[in-house]
Simulated scan of single mutants.
Amino acid sequence: MRSDPIGPVPVLYLAGWGRSGSTLAESLLDRVPGLVGVGEIKFLWERGVLQNRRCSCGTPLRSCGFWGLVFEEAFGGLPDEETARELDAASRRFRTRHLPGLLLRPDSPPDAERLRWYYETLGRLYRAIATVSGARAIVDSSKFPSYLTALLQSPGLDVRVAHIVRDPRAVAYSWQRHRHDPDAPGDARMPRMHPGFTALYWSAWNLATERIARRSGLPYLRFRYEDLIADPGGTLRAITDLGGVPAAEVPVTDAGEVFVPRTHQVSGNPMRMHAGPVALRLDDEWTRGMPTRHRYLTGAVTVPLRHRYGYKDT
């Protein structure tokens, strides 16, 4: 469905540290009329255009009908390899190593003037997504606080921040799991991280997201993964209100499942490739499987932010 957007394009930026449930949240939001979930746009150029990884619809991205229409609308066709490499190089400037600077200067993106061409390209891209999809708002789950500052510099975007958080001990446990990534080059596994480093990143990442949203005066909502599972209807209504679209119920079966159709998400958790029934059940394996030393380490490093988010000591 094509629809030319009038005025700024609303972008619902799904922020939060990795393994916090953003893929599930985006899949549910994609079912809401007026919203379109497009995955981690930050990695569109590297993983989508250059590496030609699969869109979540199952098609290699360069062959995906949806993204083909988006590229045609935005740029007159698929960007050539040189252009894609330049865009990927610009996207790589917005990475985790910028967290310390963002905590001190949350509204100052790196190389703001030299990257003006990049910001203008992003503005064209998001407008094209809105036009091709016919959606009233775009859900981008790039998550990076640094990339959020890039969107704030991009013309024609109305950015709102939906910030998902999850118990840091559950997050640290998830980062320790051995997970196969069927879409990565060389049939690789998803990256793993020591619980101590995960706890530090969880704290800095979430705090930076809060500071950027507050200093920039952005519409902002923080919600917990645990509350999304316990009350999906109420949580989604709060997010859709932030996104400026009418509330809509996502049907949940008596078995606690929701049907997720094929989407067009870029990169992210392999779960995005799944279409069909998805069980809305709390993943609390960490309470039984996490080593005591890792639980105490993660809990100690993440105080007091963990307590402020409602995650008490156990």
Rank of each mutant, 00 (worst) to 15 (best):
L297R: 06
G101L: 14
P251W: 12
L103H: 09
G256N: 02
T83P: 02
P270K: 01
G58Y: 02
E72C: 07
F144C: 11
V11A: 06
L44V: 03
M1A: 15
L104R: 15
Y173Q: 11
P182I: 00
H163Y: 06
D140P: 01
G289L: 15
E257A: 13
D227S: 07
K42W: 10
V250E: 10
G243T: 10
W17F: 15
S146Y: 05
V32M: 07
N269F: 12
L221H: 07
P195R: 09
H163C: 05
E40V: 02
Y147A: 10
A248D: 06
G48D: 01
D283Y: 04
G34I: 01
N52A: 14
M273A: 14
L12W: 04
D111Y: 12
G196K: 08
S22R: 09
S63T: 10
R47P: 06
P60L: 02
R19L: 09
G68W: 02
Q265W: 03
W17G: 09
A150F: 00
V250F: 08
E82H: 13
Y225A: 07
R166L: 09
V266R: 05
W67Q: 02
L99K: 05
E226C: 06
D284F: 06
T198S: 15
D140Y: 00
P109D: 09
T302G: 01
V159R: 06
L14G: 09
R224F: 01
P191K: 03
G16A: 08
V303M: 13
R53F: 00
I6P: 10
I164Y: 07
S133W: 07
A90R: 04
D111T: 11
L61I: 05
T96F: 13
Y118I: 05
T263M: 09
A74K: 12
L200R: 15
G244T: 04
D283W: 02
A248H: 13
K312W: 14
D254F: 10
S154K: 12
T83F: 07
R295N: 03
P232R: 02
P232A: 03
V171S: 01
T253R: 07
S56W: 04
Q51C: 06
V161M: 01
R192M: 12
E82V: 14
P60E: 03
W286Y: 13
P145A: 01
P168G: 00
R116Y: 03
G58S: 04
L282V: 05
A184N: 08
A213K: 00
A230M: 05
S267R: 11
R215C: 11
P246N: 03
A208F: 10
G134L: 06
T209H: 03
A74I: 08
R169Y: 03
T314C: 10
A188R: 15
T287F: 05
P195F: 06
G39C: 06
T96R: 15
H264R: 04
H264Q: 05
